[in-house]
Simulated scan of single mutants.
Amino acid sequence: MLIAEVSEKFNISQNTLRYYERIGLIPRVNRNKSGIRDYTEENCRWVEFIKCMRGAGLPIEALIEYVELFQQGDETLETRKEILIEQSQQLAARIEEMKKTLERLDSKIARYEQAVVKKEKTLTRQKD
């Protein structure tokens, strides 16, 4: 699959894909006889994984370390698992913080809605 196709499929710019490859987030992508990147299904699975993890806010540094360890093979299974556990815990903490922020926003919105209704009632009474 060409880089343009991968870019469109995952809604990621071609520059981002090249950057991810350059910094090691995506294992090296083979090139065809013309020197153009030729993404395999495995490459695409990496793109999908990285996009998902970045979308959730996982840091690039942790993902680079994870990919490097993955490429070293099964002797790094425990370390990779530890990275994922740590990132999962950090993500869960961020989710809890976001839930609290959402509750606060919802509370403020409810107060504004009450204020708007109260103002409308006051205006209606003044017209009568």
Score class of each variant (00 low, 15 high):
residue 75 E to P: 01
residue 34 S to H: 06
residue 128 D to V: 06
residue 45 R to D: 02
residue 55 G to L: 08
residue 88 S to C: 07
residue 114 Q to S: 06
residue 77 L to R: 11
residue 51 K to C: 12
residue 95 I to G: 06
residue 92 A to N: 14
residue 124 T to N: 09
residue 72 Q to R: 13
residue 34 S to M: 02
residue 11 N to Y: 08
residue 94 R to D: 10
residue 84 L to Q: 04
residue 62 A to E: 10
residue 121 K to Y: 10
residue 5 E to R: 12
residue 41 E to N: 11
residue 7 S to A: 07
residue 11 N to M: 14
residue 5 E to L: 09
residue 2 L to W: 07
residue 59 P to L: 00
residue 54 R to D: 05
residue 79 T to L: 10
residue 120 E to M: 09
residue 59 P to S: 11
residue 23 I to Y: 13
residue 87 Q to S: 04
residue 114 Q to N: 09
residue 66 Y to M: 03
residue 93 A to S: 08
residue 44 C to Q: 12
residue 32 N to R: 04
residue 102 L to K: 14
residue 60 I to L: 12
residue 5 E to N: 10
residue 98 M to N: 14
residue 25 L to Y: 00
residue 6 V to L: 03
residue 20 Y to N: 01
residue 31 R to I: 03
residue 88 S to V: 05
residue 25 L to D: 01
residue 82 E to P: 00
residue 41 E to D: 15
residue 94 R to L: 11
residue 57 G to R: 05
residue 69 L to V: 04
residue 87 Q to V: 04
residue 49 F to K: 01
residue 12 I to P: 01
residue 127 K to H: 09
residue 26 I to V: 12
residue 99 K to E: 15
residue 13 S to D: 13
residue 39 Y to R: 06
residue 121 K to M: 12
residue 79 T to I: 11
residue 83 I to A: 01
residue 23 I to M: 14
residue 48 E to V: 03
residue 66 Y to C: 00
residue 89 Q to F: 02
residue 70 F to C: 04
residue 67 V to Q: 08
residue 108 K to E: 09
residue 119 K to E: 13
residue 77 L to P: 03
residue 107 S to A: 15
residue 8 E to I: 07
residue 124 T to L: 08
residue 102 L to T: 13
residue 85 I to N: 11
residue 11 N to K: 11
residue 28 R to K: 14
residue 96 E to A: 12
residue 21 E to T: 13
residue 36 I to Y: 15
residue 37 R to W: 02
residue 113 E to N: 09
residue 55 G to H: 10
residue 28 R to V: 10
residue 54 R to K: 13
residue 21 E to G: 13
residue 89 Q to L: 08
residue 35 G to F: 08
residue 74 D to V: 14
residue 90 Q to R: 13
residue 50 I to R: 03
residue 44 C to A: 07
residue 10 F to G: 04
residue 71 Q to L: 12
residue 68 E to H: 10
residue 52 C to L: 13
residue 23 I to W: 14
residue 106 D to G: 14
residue 19 Y to Q: 00
residue 122 T to M: 08
residue 88 S to Y: 07
residue 31 R to Y: 03
residue 77 L to S: 07
residue 47 V to F: 03
residue 1 M to Q: 07
